[in-house]
Nucleic acid binder design. Structure first.
Lengths: 244, 244
DNA sequence: TGGTTTCAATTGTCTGACATTAGGCGGGCG
DNA sequence: CGCCCGCCTAATGTCAGACAATTGAAACCA
């Protein structure tokens, strides 16, 4: 692991890259202990501060964890689904909010992905999956629920559907798509009538999943996508009218 | 923005979280300049090193960029698709390699997601999409191609399909699924006969996309998934036999 | 006016110190 | 003998101060 003196990257970035490469290539395996900060600073011929900045970069990506004390140090972290999930949500949310992604584009992506997992969920759903879906549907029907709580329950419902597919890689991938939509959805006001329509479609999805009916699930999802789009367009149109 | 003195998190992590929250809540908008490191160290009542470690954490997630010089500083970065794409690939690759995700699981996820975008690609594909697909198919048929180059071309082919859907959010989401498979695919030896079968299916996909035939594209993708799975199983079985 | 120099602000890096933590070791004591 | 307590040590966490490098802007001069 050597540094390129011609690179215009900061030293801490170069060191982080070098260690990241070592991890991704398998040279450093999970739970392996990195040399101490002092050793690394000698190894790369830089100061300890620079090494520390490099390690913080890696820690921010959950690639390493650090532990204090005599037997402590920096260890290669096993990237958990939870960690990946959290990063995915952060990244997707910012990507959508900072790049003026249209509601249509985000919505299309989300439902396309959900339709991808629906058939699997219909095959593999557990009683637990169904119970969660039913619970969230019930919650969505409670009177006095705020729009934000309604959206949160909506996300929970869809997460249950995704997790029902029983494929952790898919769950991780879909996390971003589903959760990144939440800020956009939160801009919408859900009247009682609109909620009813959504709840009916949620029920249709739950029913389809329960009886292993993939086609019905796909149809209900497509209907929900159309409903969501219509809803958003109405809200945005009304807002534009009020402004103009 | 205040720190919680009761938290057991490191100060640099707390500061990074505080700034990240400010960015995600919209309090700090794109291209906004953060206070200088000295100002931040006063603001949070910590040393400059600690502030720097916090900023490096954010830089590692592409949330900020820094610039030296008189008018320099740390600026909120617009998260580009490229940045998000790169992070996504890193995370997905590590997730798969570190968690002993089976070939079956990864394969299932990848093809489920690809089937989600295929109908959109059939609708929106451009001449460019088709040209890239055909080019990669041609490349895959070249004699003397190494297994690695064959895999790389395979990835390029599938990326073209995904990008053909014309939805950048979907492209970003699928990046991880497609690219994370590459290390797994690289473990496979592709004989001439196996390559022929794959190339034929790629051609079937390209043809279907060209004539806007979503169903044919879905069928070809499913066939490709089955072929890939069979291929992997044969290789792993052969390896197990050689060992045992 | 236009080019050049100087300046000042800011990040990047280094050094050395001390604080904090936590496991290991050994000794004292029941 | 076994358990508990305190010391030691190695490591990370934090701090303070210094200097180097960079870069835009202001001041200056021809």
């Amino acid at each position: 692991m050597k540094l390129d003196p011609n690179s215009d990257l900061e030293l801490s970035a170069q060191i982080a890259d070098a260690i990241r490469d070592a991890i991704m290539s398998g040279e450093l395996i999970v739970d392996a202990r990195l040399p101490s900060e002092s050793d690394l600073s000698e190894l790369f011929a830089v100061s300890r501060s620079t090494v520390r900045e490099a390690l913080k970069r890696l820690a921010a990506q959950s690639l390493i964890r650090t532990q204090r004390g005599a037997t402590g140090g920096a260890f290669v972290n096993r990237l958990s689904y939870e960690d990946a999930y959290a990063q995915q949500v952060t990244t997707a949310t910012l990507l959508v909010s900072m790049n003026a992604v249209s509601f249509e584009t985000a919505c299309e992506a989300r439902y396309a992905l959900e339709r991808a997992v629906a058939p699997l969920a219909c095959t593999r759903r557990t009683p637990d999956t169904l119970a969660t879906m039913r619970t969230e549907i019930f919650r969505q029907g409670q009177p006095g629920l705020t729009d934000e709580a309604f959206c949160a329950s909506d996300v929970a419902f869809h997460r249950a559907l995704v997790d029902g597919a029983g494929n952790p890689v898919l769950s991780y991938q879909l996390a971003g798509a589903v959760e990144a939509m939440q800020p956009l959805m939160n801009m919408i006001t859900f009247t009682a009538r609109k909620r009813e329509a959504i709840i009916a479609l949620h029920s249709a999805i739950a029913d389809a999943v329960e009886r292993h009916d993939a086609q019905a699930a796909l149809d209900a999802l497509s209907a929900l996508e159309a409903e969501t789009l219509k809803l958003a367009r109405d809200v945005f149109a009304a807002r534009a009218a009020r402004k103009g």
